[in-house]
Design a binder for these strands. Sequence first.
DNA 1: CCGTATGATTAGGGTACCGAATGATATGGC
DNA 2: GCCATATCATTCGGTACCCTAATCATACGG
Lengths: 145, 145
Amino acid sequence: MTSQVTDSLAFLLSKLGQATAERFADRLAPLGLRPRHCAVLQLLEAAPLGQLALARTIGVTPSVVVDMLDELEGVGAVRRVRDTADRRRQLVELTDEGRELSRSAAKAAAQVDADLLGGLSPDQRGALREALTAIATTHDLLPGG
Amino acid sequence: MTSQVTDSLAFLLSKLGQATAERFADRLAPLGLRPRHCAVLQLLEAAPLGQLALARTIGVTPSVVVDMLDELEGVGAVRRVRDTADRRRQLVELTDEGRELSRSAAKAAAQVDADLLGGLSPDQRGALREALTAIATTHDLLPGG
DNA sequence: CCGTATGATTAGGGTACCGAATGATATGGC
DNA sequence: GCCATATCATTCGGTACCCTAATCATACGG
């Protein structure tokens, strides 16, 4: 019973999360997107949002949202529209291209999943998802969830 | 069948990995350690290593190893000793304090595990570990594994 | 109509990684 | 023995991602 750090699930999960994020990033790169943009795109599919609301929902600071939106505007995925009701607020809305990019991103994510889970049995996949979502929800780890 | 990015395991795994890393970092902070140091400490428990070997084993570039070792020397966990057989090489060896820190880090990791897995049944924990290690090994994702 | 709160932005900092360039030492061909 | 080349550690500059604090415009309540 050596009890090493690398034996811990914490370590395994950290490394695996990082590796997965990289793979996902590689798949998104051709689209001009990065992982952190996906939550934004997906949120905006439902309805336009102000930037502060966006920040709070995905769990980052408003300044990060500014950067992300600059990038997303750069690829033509979103538009900032001054809210006529409250002229401080920028309403962020998805463009048609943004909707398309969001769908492509979802496909990319599905491909990464298929790639990652390739070696697992259906039972294992189910158990994995169940355990991960259980952890995420009991610890309130998912921003916007 | 909405097929959203946030439904993917890739997304879940990325977020969870990040959150887990943060928790682990918080536990390590009082020790003066950071997550990335742990693999180094653990590796050196077996035997002293040159920095390049260290870099390749944990999967980072040599320049990163320089930084990590500066930090680890700063807390007295390791020593750099010029190799007499090849004077280009610095042999990195654990100090007694380094050994102690490594044990403390393992305890911290175990605590994070207990915390994360608190809400899961023993069966779920086993299935989770099994699935994660399966993914890690089939994709060669674990540096030093 | 003035003080205060709110929304977006900018500026600067911290962590963690990378690649390329540098300097010291080793090694193999001749 | 000597020189080109390779290897090891290091430094430097850059990228990605996040943060806080300060700034500026606009809204809102007394």
